[in-house]
Design a protein around this nucleic acid. Structure first.
Lengths: 113, 307
DNA sequence: TAATATGAAACAAATTTTCCT
DNA sequence: TTAGGAAAATTTGTTTCATAT
């Protein structure tokens, strides 16, 4: 798992896409599923940067959850939780890597997407 | 004042999230009259919505059996969770002490780790029986609670509670024997109380893997589009089975569902299988999971000769 | 250029909180 | 005070448009 320690207290935008971060939040959870609210909490807990401008990044999180097919909403007793369709997630990423040789060279391996 | 109450230091007692038995060989703490399954809680911005009542119109009653002492004891009351997890104080609700001339019980309240606890006397002269007419329910704002450091529960759709009763009985050695009992679940949201299906009673707890038997569910808010879904989860929470039971819509009423238990996914099991089922109205309005057990067929017949 | 990412925003539905009689 | 109802407010999800990489 990536080490986000630096960003916990440094008010610097983490160099990862929303999709990468959302997936990470869900992967970090015990049951591989989180409510929207719990995803928000993970963001604020893990990144100083997301402790301000909440309206903006929360909107973006919801936007990404809806937009990407890899995030699947599952009904539950307690409302709904979000899960990751890992197959779908990796499909998108591998398309990007195999489909663009120039990007492969420049993509730092530690960065998502 | 109230002798015997409030005299025990909090630090020597088990914490509120600690599981306790409701009975021992000698004692039993029992809810003689259960509260109603619905009680709309009030917010801090509202006036009180009164004490929790019983189905009968009276109030819940709790009694301690087996106590031979002469001294009155204190009965503690707090609001607990009502989900599948083990009971703990409900972060989004608090007991609210009702006072007034309609209330017969004197009560005393204190806060233990951000949970309000009511204490009322249990007196030998009343047979150690207490009428709970002084306990209302206060709703705290989700956002306020969720930002508390260390709180991981979510308030949204988390609106069911149980009344939890505790008593600490002094023992010869200076120790205490603590007992606890929790009420049936109480739905505290106006909307959920009106719309969510709730199963209060099921006519049977188990049947053979073949299913096919009729089961009668008693409860609230059942409707024409109510479905009953049987599910099974593995130990780590992965759902591995789901099947809809057929509902007899002709017989069913708003407070009663007649269903046919569906067959279990594997008729050849050797040990009983514990599954869940729930009632769901429309897309989102679903009841808490209920428990059901499928039992294996009598004996796997090895004989092949005809009878 | 085509594909992706990010932001802002309009809308709808579900759920919670406040207000009124 | 206590009950009921429901308006007002907030959350959660979906979509669309514009801009930057």
């Amino acid at each position: 798992a990536p080490n986000y320690e630096f960003y916990k207290n440094a008010d610097v935008r983490p160099p990862f896409t929303y999709a990468t971060l959302i997936r990470q939040a869900i992967m970090d959870s015990k049951d591989m599923q989180l409510t929207l609210n719990e995803i928000y909490s993970w963001f604020t807990r893990t990144f100083a940067y997301f402790r301000r401008n909440a309206a903006t990044w929360k909107n973006a999180v919801r936007h990404n959850l809806s937009l990407h097919k890899c995030f699947v909403r599952v009904e539950n007793v307690k409302g709904a939780v979000w899960t990751v369709d890992e197959m779908e997630y990796q499909k998108r990423r591998s398309q990007k890597i195999t489909g663009s040789p120039t990007l492969v060279k420049n993509l730092p391996s530690s960065l998502g997407y | 004042l109230m002798p015997g109450i409030c005299s025990i230091p909090v630090t020597s007692l088990p914490s509120l999230e600690w599981p306790l038995p409701s009975r021992t060989d000698q004692y039993e703490l029992r809810i003689e009259v259960q509260p109603k399954p619905h009680h709309r809680a009030h917010y801090e911005t509202e006036g009180s919505r009164g004490a929790v009542k019983a189905q009968t119109g009276g109030h819940p009653v709790v009694q301690l059996h087996g106590y031979r002492g002469k001294e009155p004891l204190g009965l503690q009351i707090f609001i607990g969770t009502a989900d599948e997890r083990i009971l703990k104080p409900h972060a989004f609700y608090q007991v609210h002490r009702i006072t007034g001339k309609t209330v017969t019980t004197t009560s005393y309240e204190k806060i233990i780790h951000s949970t309000k606890v009511l204490e009322i006397p249990l007196e030998p002269k009343n047979n150690m029986k207490a009428i709970i007419d002084c306990a209302g329910i206060l709703k705290l704002r989700n956002a306020d609670i969720e930002l508390r450091k260390g709180e991981t529960d979510i308030g949204r759709k988390n609106t069911r509670v149980r009344l939890v009763f505790r008593v600490h009985i002094p023992q010869p050695g200076g120790q205490h024997m603590s007992l606890q009992v929790a009420s049936h679940p109480i739905e505290c949201s106006q909307r959920s109380a009106h719309e969510l299906p709730m199963v209060e009673k099921q006519d049977m707890d188990s049947c053979s893997v073949l299913g096919g038997q009729q089961m009668i569910l008693t409860g609230q808010n059942f409707s024409a589009d109510s479905k009953v879904i049987f599910t099974e989860k593995t130990h780590d929470g992965q759902q591995i089975w789901e099947l809809e039971a057929t509902v007899d819509k002709d017989k069913s009423q708003p407070s009663m569902l007649f269903i046919e238990v569906p067959p279990y996914r594997d008729p050849s099991i050797c040990h009983p299988a514990k599954v869940n089922f729930y009632v769901i109205n429309g897309k989102r309005k679903r009841s808490q999971p209920q428990h059901f057990t499928y039992t294996p067929l009598p004996a796997p017949s090895i004989k092949t000769e005809p009878v």
